[in-house]
Computed example of a mutant assay.
Amino acid sequence: MHLPATEAQRELVSRLGRRLAVPMRDVNPATWWRFTLIFSVASFGFLAGLIALMFLVDPFDTGRSPLRLKEGVPQQGPRTANVSRARDQAYNSAIIGNSRVQMIDPAALTEETGIPFVALVVQGGLPKELLTTWDWFMAHRRAPPKVMVLGIDGVWCSDDLSKQVNPFPYWLYSRSTLEYLQGLFRSSSLSGLRNYFSYLIGHRPQARPDGFWDYENVYGVGTPQQLAHMRAELDKPQGTADVNLGSHFPAADAVAARIAALPAETVVILVRPPVYITGLPEPGTEAAKAETVCRDVFAKLAAARPNTRIIDWRFDRPENRDPGNFFDHTHYRKTLARRIEAEIAAAVQDERAAKP
């Protein structure tokens, strides 16, 4: 229940209101201009100082800063960590692709061939992102690469090279300093700066320099119930990638242009990674025809350049009918990864041995 205000109470409220209210006409316009100017200069100075700090610290190790506070970068996702890895001169060969080639261990290839490999893998990466990664790696080679391994799965046969699913920091890989500075104006850059300072003082571990990420640790061994569920999911047919029965394969054209620009002595290995049998298109379908067309496109591309091989596991073969080799339709276990590594290493050694 509200009690009626007395005359004295109303008068008190009125006086307080008059004292607290400051009519705009009573404020000196010069005061507002000074306040606006000071606030704007202070804000601009703060932002400029912050950008200058991030440029000098270079938390993603892009190589643009004259400073080098510490080798490598803190543990983080590959989309940003690969900027540093691709610049590392300790590696003169690269594995580039999405998670379909993630289980190929660069250390295993290094041991088999004597050539230092780095894995520049982008989970869920599409051709535009992976070609950007390729270009960044090539732009930072002081000597020609010895081997380039590129994972080619179904997404490389689309007729749309611009397709994008997950955000990708193109500004980090840009050759334009202005585009890089514009990219620093985002919250993720501040997070990167904070993580880098934590890394500098030893509170955050370093991202693995060679880029290998064993996803078996993510899937785990699994209980009998989990394994049974995994097998049941494998038995279900999976939808295929875009069906392209035309003659326009922009990703293949982009790959052809890049490998043509490589020195003749660089070995190129195109890997079509394994797919569980129910992840392949049904024979006789339009998708199956598109799969054959895509295979032929990349096979011809490999045949057109010396020192280039295609390693194809993406078809019906006994290993791709064994559910014990897979976690899902496109992610395979170490049992297959070791075999693919051995095949890549043998192809590299054969090509290098064939040189005069």
Rank of each mutant, 00 (worst) to 15 (best):
P4H: 10
E7V: 10
E7S: 12
L12S: 02
R15L: 15
R19T: 10
R19C: 07
V22Q: 08
V22F: 12
V27N: 01
F35E: 05
S43G: 10
F44W: 07
I51C: 01
A52C: 02
F55K: 01
F55Q: 02
F60Q: 08
R64G: 06
G72L: 13
G72F: 12
V73M: 09
T80W: 12
V83G: 04
S84R: 03
R85P: 01
Q89P: 06
V101T: 09
D105E: 13
T113R: 00
I115F: 12
G125A: 13
E129H: 04
W134P: 04
D135M: 07
W136L: 03
A139E: 14
P144S: 05
V149D: 00
C157N: 01
S158H: 05
Y170G: 00
L172V: 00
R175K: 03
S188C: 04
S189L: 02
G192Q: 04
S198I: 10
I201W: 08
H203F: 11
D210Q: 10
D210L: 02
Y215T: 07
E216Y: 01
T223K: 09
L227I: 15
H229V: 13
R231M: 11
K236M: 11
D242Q: 14
P250S: 09
P250W: 09
R258Q: 09
T266R: 02
V268E: 04
V271W: 03
P274F: 04
T278R: 08
I310R: 06
R317L: 06
N320Y: 06
R333C: 13
T335M: 15
L336D: 09
A342W: 07
R352I: 01
P356M: 04
P356E: 01
